[in-house]
Simulated assay, not measured.
Amino acid sequence: MHSHRKLQPPSVVNIEDLRRLAKRRLPQVIWDYLEGGAEDEVTLRRNRAAFDRYHLLPRMVTGKGSRDLSITLFGQRLAAPFMIGPTGLNGIYVPDADLMLARAAAAAGVAFSLSAGSNNDIEAVARASAGPKFFQLYPWGGREVATRLLARAHTAGYCALMVTVDSLIPGNRERDVRNRFAHALHFSPRIVWDAATHPRWVVSTWFARGMPRFENLAEFLPPGSDAYALAAYTRAQRNPFYSWEDVAWLRSQWAGPLVVKGILTADDTRLAASHGADAVVVSNHGGRSLDGLPATLDMLPSVAAAAGGMPVLVDSGFRRGSDIVKALALGARGVLLGRAPLYGVAAAGEAGASRALEILLQETDRVMGLLGVDSVDALGHQHVGLQPA
């Protein structure tokens, strides 16, 4: 299913339709990696439940018949108030998924964030897409690894650096533990049978490429290191001692905008700003790191109030244009999309990723029109409220 025509209504009208198609195509072990969260998945559910607790408040007969959905971020004009956020190991859904996502973002006029844990490397993604690109860094391997990755990202033309600080210790994703999935497949009779009952994935992904490698990290291991060696390297390179002084060091090494991803409190927002951040992302890692955290939408207003004009982005759980508009009204400059475009690429490759962005653009435009606003900047707290308890 790779024809864009087949992804139009009535077959695919929302992100949930893409989610169902992705679930049908992927083996259970791969689906669990995409869909799952940490431990009891309380944070995962809270992220979605929060959107239901906030209602929208329209103003009627405003005469605002057309809308401008664009935003300016770090001096760049983007066509919509959302972007594709950084996600790793995307090649497990379809080969070259990172390239597909980057091209879909560029075609839609939105930014793309490449994860350090991508399966297409920094340079390949830069060649594939002329759109605005961020590079996301995990604090792996100490400063020597960071120095090399930052140099490559700068040379390749990435316009901003995003450092993720909320997964310095790996989350306990019990679905993956049961599947023995640790950024690599470990085969068992159940896993083999699972794969065999999903022939489209087997033919298009596993037979085509096999286990995808973390290509950005290949230079730090001996030549020819396979996907399993690289996966083991990522697990061994976590740095639980990472500190705000390390963030300040990153600021000294990177000339462009620096974004700190994984912030949930006003205090950490102020610390990020004082150590050189140009923006923060309110994030709980999509519920995949620490279970029991609050929904990002609930924490967004206090972070935005503490930011002092610094751009605040937000992620985790966004599936609808109305979700995006609620976040904008609560103080976000923009939204990072994680699973939503992954459902698209897992369902139908680049056409699926493009369809996900198209759906969210259309929904966001419609919601803004029904609210009676003609621009993202016109949205504010007057357009959103909490449902009575």
Rank of each mutant, 00 (worst) to 15 (best):
Y343G: 07
E123C: 02
L271M: 13
K326E: 05
G256Q: 03
S375L: 00
V125M: 10
P301I: 03
R235G: 10
I71D: 04
R178C: 07
L34V: 11
A232K: 13
L78T: 04
G309S: 07
D246A: 06
R46G: 06
D40M: 15
I359V: 14
I30C: 08
A104I: 07
A332K: 03
A38C: 13
F134A: 01
H285Q: 14
S274V: 04
F187R: 10
S289K: 13
A80R: 14
G352F: 07
R77Y: 10
H2R: 08
P95W: 06
A378G: 03
Q8I: 00
A50P: 12
Y138S: 09
N179F: 06
G210T: 00
A105W: 11
T364R: 05
P86R: 02
A332F: 01
D166G: 08
A389P: 12
A307Y: 09
P27R: 09
D17Y: 07
R251I: 09
R209V: 14
E350R: 05
N120S: 15
F134S: 00
G334H: 02
L300M: 06
P27E: 09
F220A: 10
G321C: 05
A273W: 06
A306C: 07
C159W: 11
R19A: 13
E358R: 13
Y93R: 09
K64T: 06
A305N: 14
S322E: 14
H154R: 15
K261E: 06
G91C: 05
R178I: 04
V165M: 08
G369M: 04
T269V: 04
L386W: 12
R127G: 08
L360E: 06
M83Q: 14
V325G: 00
A378N: 03
R320S: 12
P58G: 05
F187G: 01
D68T: 02
T269K: 07
A306H: 07
S70T: 10
P10Q: 04
I191R: 12
G369H: 03
S283E: 06
H381G: 09
V203G: 03
R5L: 13
L297E: 14
G85T: 01
L337C: 05
L297I: 14
E41T: 11
A218K: 13
R288Q: 15
S274K: 11
S225F: 10
H275V: 00
M368H: 01
G75M: 11
W201Y: 13
